[in-house]
Simulated scan of single mutants.
Amino acid sequence: AQYKEIGMQYIAIPYLMEEDRPGTEKFLKNIETFKKIGEACNKVGITLLYHNHDFEFVKMPNGQYALDYIYTEIPADLLQTELDICWVKVAGEEPVDYIKKYAGRAPVVHLKDFYKEGKPANMYELIGIETEKKKETGKFEFRPVGHGMQDIPPVLDAALEAGSKWVVVEQDQSYDTPALEAVKMSRDYLKGLGW
Score class of each variant (00 low, 15 high):
I129H: 06
E136T: 13
E32W: 11
E32T: 12
F55A: 05
D97C: 00
P75V: 00
K29Q: 12
I74E: 03
M60G: 07
N52S: 02
E132G: 07
G45S: 09
G38D: 10
F114M: 14
I31M: 13
H110N: 07
N52A: 01
E136A: 13
I127N: 11
K139R: 11
L78N: 10
K133G: 00
M60T: 13
I74D: 02
I74V: 15
E25F: 06
K119C: 04
N30K: 12
K43M: 11
K139G: 00
N42Y: 08
Q64P: 08
K29A: 14
A121R: 13
V145R: 05
E73T: 09
K100F: 01
I31G: 02
L67V: 05
D84Y: 04
G23R: 12
C86M: 07
V90S: 00
D77Q: 14
V96Y: 05
I46Q: 11
D20E: 12
D68Y: 03
K29D: 14
E132D: 13
P75G: 02
F57V: 06
E39T: 12
L78D: 08
Q64K: 15
R105P: 03
K100D: 07
T47V: 14
I31A: 05
M123N: 01
L67D: 01
A106H: 03
H53K: 07
I85N: 06
I74Q: 04
F57K: 09
E56V: 00
A76C: 04
G92C: 05
